[in-house]
Design a protein around this nucleic acid. Structure first.
Lengths: 104, 104
DNA sequence: CGGATATATACATGATAATGTATATATCTG
DNA sequence: CAGATATATACATTATCATGTATATATCCG
């Protein structure tokens, strides 16, 4: 994996692609229509999203279906968790409770 | 504000700086010691973090104290929320409901 | 005032990254 | 097999970015 989750999301076009996959898997052609850049660029962005774990790929004939994968989102959420007390005291308490529960 | 929260966090050194501020405000000198790059680089990173809303600055004599601000973290959490059903078990039922709906 | 300390900025440089065009590869259809 | 369609990749170009060195600015202290 060449680049990390944060770097993968740094590019706005990649975030648009990720958003386009929110409702389920899509073939590249669909994504190109929403991305606003050339097909070759979308293909490269998809490779980066794949390498960084954000998407899976399922070939089907001449199509390739891309779909979101949960891991990097979990990772980002884990990173955010360390700062959650900064802005939401209630959530912090909730997280502590969850943590306690998980350890039982 | 020139760059967005995702771009601000894309750089590992900036994430190290953010981490160094987790326990409260620090003067630049402290941060330089933890950042692993030259003072001028830290200063530039702090400017970027400031412009993207991640840090506040409080001058005090010849020192400048930087501290984390909550807004961009909230923003990131809001972004993540749209994908939470992907991976958060508590939201599984919600996701299933959405899926069912989409197929109709 | 004058030197020391803390921080920011200008400049040059090397690295990385996003993009389009053109082309390659694979698969489908007749 | 031949053309059409879907996707990926090579290449060139341009823009952005991280970094160090050197210097500027501001504040402190004697």
């Amino acid at each position: 994996m060449q680049i990390d989750a944060f770097q993968a999301l740094a590019d706005p076009t990649r975030r648009r692609i990720v958003a386009a996959l929110r409702l389920g898997e899509r073939p590249v052609g669909d994504i190109v229509r929403e991305a606003g850049i050339h097909q070759s660029g979308v293909s490269r962005h998809l490779r980066i999203l794949h390498e960084s774990g954000f998407v899976s790929m399922r070939p089907d004939g001449q199509h390739r279906y891309y779909a979101l994968r949960p891991e990097p989102f979990r990772e980002m959420d884990g990173w955010l968790a360390a700062y959650r007390s900064l802005w939401d005291a209630r959530l912090d308490r909730f997280a502590a409770a969850l943590e306690k529960r998980r350890r039982k």
